[in-house]
Deep mutational scan, measured.
Amino acid sequence: MPEGSASLQLAVGDRVVYPNQGVCRVSAIDVKEVAGQKLTFVTMRREEDGAVVMVPEGKVLAIGVRKVASAE
C-alpha cells in the first residue's frame, strides 16, 4: 500500500463487517500476482454460509469493511 494511505490493520482471525455481505472472518492475507503486478489481498470467509470474498488490501476501507465492535 502506498505510504501515507489510510488502511485498516487486519490480521488473520479478525472478525469484520463487510457491507451487504455480513460478518466475515479474515482467513488469509496473501500477495498474489495479477496482470504482472504483485498485490496484497485480504481473504475473508462469511460466517453465515462460508462464502469466500477476496479484496485488494488497498480497497478495504473504500468498500467500507470495518472491525466488529467489541462488547466493551
Rank of each mutant, 00 (worst) to 15 (best):
E47F: 04
G64N: 06
G64F: 08
D49F: 03
P19E: 08
Q9W: 09
V53F: 15
N20K: 09
S27D: 12
R46H: 05
V26C: 00
A71T: 11
K32E: 05
E47A: 03
P19G: 14
I29P: 00
A69T: 13
N20V: 05
K38T: 09
V17Y: 15
L61V: 14
R25H: 04
P19K: 07
G64E: 06
V26R: 00
V53S: 04
A11T: 09
A6I: 13
L39Y: 09
G4F: 09
V52Y: 13
V26A: 01
V12I: 10
M1F: 11
M44V: 02
P2D: 11
R45L: 10
V34H: 06
Y18F: 14
Q9M: 09
R25S: 06
V53I: 15
K59M: 15
L39D: 04
K59E: 15
V55C: 04
S5W: 10
V42G: 00
P2M: 12
E72M: 11
N20W: 06
V65N: 03
T43I: 14
P56W: 14
E72P: 12
V16S: 00
A11F: 10
G22N: 03
V34Q: 05
R45C: 01
V34K: 04
I63W: 07
S5N: 11
V17N: 07
V16H: 01
S27Y: 14
S7E: 09
V53A: 03
L39C: 01
V68S: 06
M54K: 06
L8G: 08
K59Y: 14
A71M: 11
A51C: 05
I29Y: 02
P19I: 05
K32D: 03
G22I: 05
G36A: 02
A62H: 07
D30K: 08
R66E: 10
V16P: 00
A28L: 05
L39T: 10
V68N: 05
K38R: 10
M54S: 10
A71W: 09
P19Y: 08
M1P: 12
S70Q: 13
E72F: 10
V16D: 01
V65F: 06
G13E: 01
G4I: 12
Q21Y: 15
V53W: 15
E33I: 14
K67M: 12
V16A: 03
D30N: 10
V55A: 06
I29H: 01
A11P: 01
D14R: 01
A28Y: 05
E33A: 05
G50Q: 04
R25G: 01
A62K: 08
T43L: 07
A35E: 13
D49M: 02
I29T: 01
G4C: 05
A6E: 11
A35F: 09
M44C: 04
V42M: 03
S27K: 06
Q37Y: 07
V68Q: 06
I63F: 09
A71E: 11
N20E: 09
D30A: 09
V34P: 01
R66M: 13
I63H: 11
R45W: 09
G50D: 07
V42Y: 13
Y18C: 08
V16F: 07
L8Y: 09
G58C: 07
M54C: 04
S5M: 12
Y18H: 13
G4M: 11
V23F: 14
P19N: 08
D14Q: 04
P2T: 12
A71V: 12
V12G: 00
K32F: 15
A62P: 07
V42D: 00
L61T: 11
V68K: 06
V52W: 08
G36K: 03
R66G: 07
K59N: 12
F41L: 07
M44G: 00
V31Y: 08
Y18N: 02
L39V: 15
E48W: 14
F41T: 04
D49G: 04
S70D: 13
L61A: 14
E33R: 06
A11Y: 09
Q9D: 09
D49S: 03
V65Q: 04
E48V: 13
R15V: 12
Q37T: 10
I63S: 12
S7M: 12
D30V: 14
Y18P: 01
T40E: 01
R46A: 04
S5G: 13
R46S: 06
K38M: 13
V31R: 05
V68Y: 07
V65G: 05
D49K: 01
A69F: 08
E57Y: 15
D30C: 07
A6V: 11
K67T: 06
E72L: 10
A35T: 04
E47W: 03
V52F: 12
G4D: 10
L10Y: 03
N20A: 08
K67H: 08
V60H: 04
V17D: 09
V55E: 06
L8S: 08
D49W: 04
N20Q: 09
Q37N: 08
E3R: 04
K32H: 12
C24G: 01
C24S: 01
G58T: 14
G64Y: 08
L8H: 08
V17L: 14
R46Y: 02
G13R: 01
S7R: 12
V60Q: 03
A69M: 09
V55K: 02
L61Y: 10
Y18K: 04
V17G: 02
Y18A: 05
E57N: 05
G22A: 04
A35D: 14
L61F: 08
N20L: 09
V55L: 14
L61I: 14
Q9E: 09
R25V: 14
R45Y: 12
E47T: 03
V31D: 04
A69N: 12
V34D: 04
P2Y: 08
D30I: 14
A69C: 13
V17W: 15
G50P: 02
A28G: 08
V68L: 14
R15D: 02
E47M: 06
T43Q: 05
V53T: 05
T43W: 12
F41C: 00
P56N: 06
D14P: 01
M1T: 12
K67E: 06
E3S: 11
P2Q: 12
A11I: 09
E72D: 12
Q9N: 11
I63T: 08
V53P: 01
S5R: 08
A69Q: 12
R25N: 03
G13A: 01
A51F: 14
M1Y: 13
A62E: 15
E72H: 11
V52D: 05
V23N: 04
G22V: 05
M54R: 09
R45V: 15
A28T: 05
V65Y: 05
V55F: 08
A62D: 11
Q37F: 08
L10P: 01
V17Q: 07
E33P: 03
K59I: 14
D14Y: 02
V26D: 00
V60T: 04
L8N: 07
L8A: 08
A11K: 14
K59W: 15
V65H: 04
S27V: 15
A51E: 08
V16M: 03
L39W: 07
R66H: 14
E33K: 06
V26H: 00
E3K: 07
Q21E: 08
K59A: 13
S7P: 13
M1W: 10
C24H: 08
R66V: 15
S5C: 04
S5T: 13
D49P: 01
R45H: 10
A51S: 08
G22H: 04
G58K: 14
L39I: 15
M54I: 15
V34E: 06
A11L: 08
E48S: 15
G64D: 06
V52K: 06
R25L: 11
A71H: 12
V12N: 01
A51Y: 10
F41S: 01
G4N: 12
K67N: 05
S5E: 11
V34S: 05
D14W: 02
A28I: 04
E3P: 11
S27T: 15
R45K: 10
G64V: 08
S70M: 10
V26N: 00
G58L: 11
G13M: 02
